[in-house]
């Protein structure tokens, strides 16, 4: 319940606020020794939109995500979130400000149940101190009960994972693990959700479920989504804005169909050659 109030007040009026920048990446460069993972990447994410980052393997998408979420410190450039420069803000503080992410190679905590994994997402927004926790009285008890109610009624219901709530995450299928990871990110009270390959390795049915969840997150929860994804069908169907990067640079950005038919994008994916023929092949294939 609380979540919906917060999101309605702060983020939800999607239509009115669309167009305002929630996340801005300006001239971001990241190098590991001589390897330039990112060079001068700039783009912006509009509030209430779904923005996708695409690009071939090794293009720097995950490095970009890691720089945004505070995993890596970029060598140059800035990340602006909610108008605030993030360069000196450590990762846990970014999480508290409302930046939630999922990982490409699922980063759930194997030693915990699904429920505990999801509850963990709320960590930064809770106030229980060690003494409360040892006594489990007053604040600790109240906070846990509120969190449990909200997780059950808002998140677990929404993502249809009520049948597995008490299972250990290690025992779940890949698709369900991805869904639990999304649940945990939603428990973080996100303003922006960074999804790193949300449907990688999923079958068609699981992909469709995930697509529906992502759209609902945007429309019902009013959360802005930035995702990296290889499934072009999904990217083209869901995205409001697509950014294509290759070799650490932004090749092009724009509406899905513009990016899809951009010659540089096609050559990045398929290699250079007869662009017209490849374009035809690409459109037929996907």
């Amino acid at each position: 319940m609380q979540m919906s109030q917060v999101s309605e007040q702060e983020v939800s009026p999607t239509l009115h606020t669309e167009g305002r920048e929630i996340l801005g990446v300006q001239g971001l460069s990241l190098a590991f020794g001589g390897v330039k993972a990112l060079s001068h990447v700039s783009f912006s994410v509009k509030e209430g939109s779904i923005t996708s980052v695409i690009g071939p393997n090794g293009a720097g998408k995950t490095s970009l995500f890691n720089s945004i979420s505070g995993f890596y410190t970029p060598n140059e450039g800035t990340v602006k979130f909610l108008g605030q420069t993030m360069n000196n803000v450590p990762a846990p503080d970014r999480a508290e400000l409302g930046m939630a992410r999922t990982f490409q190679n699922i980063a759930l905590f194997k030693g915990m149940t699904v429920l505990d994994n999801i509850k963990l997402g709320r960590h930064a927004h809770m106030k229980t101190n060690p003494l409360d926790a040892l006594l489990y009285f007053g604040r600790a008890r109240r906070e846990e009960a509120e969190l449990r109610k909200e997780v059950e009624e808002k998140i677990i219901d929404f993502l249809e994972i009520d049948h597995i709530r008490n299972q250990s995450v290690a025992a779940l299928s890949y698709g369900l693990q991805k869904r639990v990871e999304l649940a945990r990110a939603l428990a973080m009270k996100p303003k922006i959700l960074l999804l790193d390959e949300p449907v990688a390795g999923m079958n068609r049915e699981e992909t469709e479920d995930m697509a529906r969840f992502i759209l609902d997150v945007k429309e019902e929860w009013g959360v802005t989504v930035l995702m990296v994804e290889h499934d072009m069908g999904l990217v083209m169907d869901l995205s409001d804005h697509v950014v294509c990067i290759n070799f650490g640079q932004v090749i092009t950005e724009g509406l899905p169909h513009e990016v899809q038919s951009h010659p540089d994008v096609i050559s990045a994916y398929l290699g250079s050659g007869d662009v017209a023929a490849l374009r035809k092949k690409f459109k037929e294939g996907k």
């Binding site: 450590p90 846990p92 030693g111 930064a124 489990y136």
Partner: peptide
């Protein structure tokens, strides 16, 4: 009791994957 609250969960998160724990807001 400790492991019924956010503090216990944070400990377990650090044990299982400390780097991603940080991105979840755990210092």
């Amino acid at each position: 009791n400790l492991f019924r609250t956010r503090i216990g969960r944070a400990f377990i998160a650090i044990r299982d994957r400390d780097i991603s724990a940080e991105v979840l807001g755990i210092r």
